[in-house]
């Protein structure tokens, strides 16, 4: 009985290892491809694949909620990026060759030094033993934490997200009511609103 369970544990560990290395390889290789491929569309897809693999690695560490959120968020984000490219670059992004870099060698040098420093730290530091064990339902534990003991985090993250929406709209809108009617909104409108202009054109 114990032999069977040992064998099954070993095979499970083996599977997890294989899956982890597959995710790791895809994540890093696709991350490199982002800056190697010569079109922005391909770079976007490569980044999406890299993030899906990162989400997969998180899933292997039992973070079912955060892993799935990473995958969903990044897939949506890459869709937004594709729309963005078509909107602003006015090109067929898949066909446009592109290589726009500066300080290429310095950047490679800094990246290699960073990797060597962090990697040697990861290998050489005597990491402590694991303390405690994960709760049976990790997602439920996270939900309970942000609604009970760590509620402050949720209370801060919420307004930050709202502020981000406001900032995003303000920065990216071309002409707001403050542009038309002054900072106190008490000046006569500088130009007719879009509806009137459309009627004039008719």
């Amino acid at each position: 009985m114990s032999t069977v369970s040992t064998v099954s544990t070993v095979s499970t560990m083996g599977l997890v290892d294989v899956a982890f290395w597959a995710c790791a390889l895809v994540a890093v290789a696709m991350g490199v491809l982002v800056f190697v491929v010569d079109s922005m569309a391909r770079a976007t897809y490569a980044l999406a694949a890299s993030f899906v693999a990162t989400g997969g690695a998180l899933l292997l560490m039992q973070q079912s909620y955060l892993g799935v959120v990473v995958v969903l968020m990044m897939v949506m984000e890459m869709a937004v990026m594709a729309v963005y490219m078509v909107m602003f670059m006015g090109m067929n992004p898949a066909l446009m060759p592109m290589s726009m870099v500066h300080s290429h060698r310095a950047a490679i040098g800094v990246a290699v030094v960073t990797f060597v420093a962090l990697g040697s730290g990861a290998v050489l530091v005597p990491w402590p033993e694991r303390r405690g064990s994960p709760s049976p339902d990790v997602t439920e534990a996270l939900g309970t934490a942000i609604m009970e003991s760590h509620m402050l985090v949720m209370m801060v993250v919420g307004p930050v997200m709202v502020a981000t929406i406001v900032v995003g709209v303000l920065l990216s809108s071309s002409r707001t009511r403050y542009d038309r009617m002054g900072d106190d909104l008490d000046q006569p409108a500088l130009d007719p609103p879009a509806l009137e202009r459309r009627e004039e054109r008719r």
Partner: peptide
Amino acid sequence: LLVASALLAVGLYGALSQQVVVM
């Protein structure tokens, strides 16, 4: 941590070297 360092280093290269804001 090694894989994470690799991702961070690749990202750092991109952030330092690319000219297009989206990249």
